[in-house]
Design a protein around this nucleic acid. Structure first.
Lengths: 212, 212
DNA sequence: GTCTATATTCGGATAGAC
DNA sequence: GTCTATCCGAATATAGAC
């Protein structure tokens, strides 16, 4: 292999990958273009050349994968929905929570495509004023709007208020796990670990579906 | 009133208050000493004079109130514990979750002492590498260690693993609510609001204690 | 498209007068 | 203790050679 180690992909992709990682671990302001370009093995001016500005780069980082994840949620929902129909029953809460939780947690543990990094990036981006997350947020809200009727069928008497709050808490348990996947070890004095994604997912699903 | 509007308190306190607010809304790197000093109506050099450096200022911001909150949690636990003893029963999960959740949520809605700001600051500080949160984290872990035996009495057969995870998810629902108290409106297309702290607290307690 | 050089701005920290 | 002035480093962005 004669090429440099980190030079296997296109410069633009390499910049996006590195930026995604750095922005997932540090705040927007504390990541410099210099950090990005040096780690991506491209020239300092490459970011401006390919993206225009640091903000634009940030923007492209989340645009790149934004819709994918919500799409996966809906695919799971469809699977459960047609299965339930075939069996002549309602979709269960467990299935609904499962469909909401699985894609992000699955991504969190992905090592190959860097999806793990993106999930952490997203969680951090929500807090950044520099980022306009309305786009991502709107997509997520749209997805929830598709899930809501299913919940309503299960709990016809539940106030809409309460329903939204419970979805909110479910997202909270998930986001917290994503943001602080390492803290569970500290919290338990080293006794606990986030072993594998299925177990983590199942734990969240069990906890949250009981909460509904 | 002859004095300047924002000059009622000591310079040092004023700096801390402003810094707390700015750090609660923005990342460490994106807040400048110049932002802080101009809003606090003190001279640019005052931060270095009183605290030494920007990092030291950040550190003092969270040291100032760190122990208070966990202290309040333990006070609540003690109340419930002696009440339960008097009634010859175990402390309930609801009470335990209540004791863990109430102080932060109560603070979140406080408008007078600026505790609300501190809670948001804390949530953000957890993500900052610039901050060494081991101090705060250790205190929280110590508090959990006091709560654990109570949970164990209620669920003697529950694996410690599961217990820690459930506390983790509870903290998640809480932190998410704190971090995104405004998002519940967006999520529900304006139908929901975080009306008052008791209702919010009760919602979290209900959801999470069912999850145990 | 990739490099160097640089213009420009901004922020942290300090020195030194008062 | 409070102010002004300033040093220094770092960072974004751009201009222009190759």
């Amino acid at each position: 292999m004669t090429a440099k180690l980190n030079a296997r992909s296109e410069p633009k992709t390499r910049i996006l990958d590195i930026a995604e990682r750095l922005f997932s671990e540090n705040s927007f302001a504390s990541v410099s273009i210099r950090n990005v370009t040096s780690l991506a093995h491209v020239n300092l001016s490459a970011v401006n050349y390919y993206f225009g500005s640091k903000k634009d780069l940030f923007h492209e980082v989340y645009i790149r994968r934004a819709t994918e994840m919500n799409h996966e949620r809906l695919l799971l929902l469809n699977d459960f929905s047609s299965l339930a129909e075939k069996e002549g029953r309602n979709v269960t809460v467990k299935e609904l929570v499962y469909a909401l939780i699985t894609p992000p947690i699955l991504w969190l543990y992905d090592k190959e495509q860097g999806l793990s990094v993106y999930i952490k990036f997203l969680a951090r981006a929500y807090l950044e004023k520099a980022s306009d997350m309305s786009h991502v947020l709107k997509e997520e809200v749209d997805v929830f709007d598709i899930f809501i009727p299913y919940f309503n069928k299960i709990y016809p008497d539940l106030e809409q208020n309460d329903l939204y709050w419970r979805i909110h808490f479910t997202m909270g348990a998930m986001h917290h796990t994503i943001n602080h996947i390492d803290r569970i070890g500290l919290l338990s004095n080293g006794k606990c670990k986030a072993e594998n994604w299925e177990k983590t997912r199942d734990r969240i699903v069990a906890f949250c579906s009981k909460g509904f």
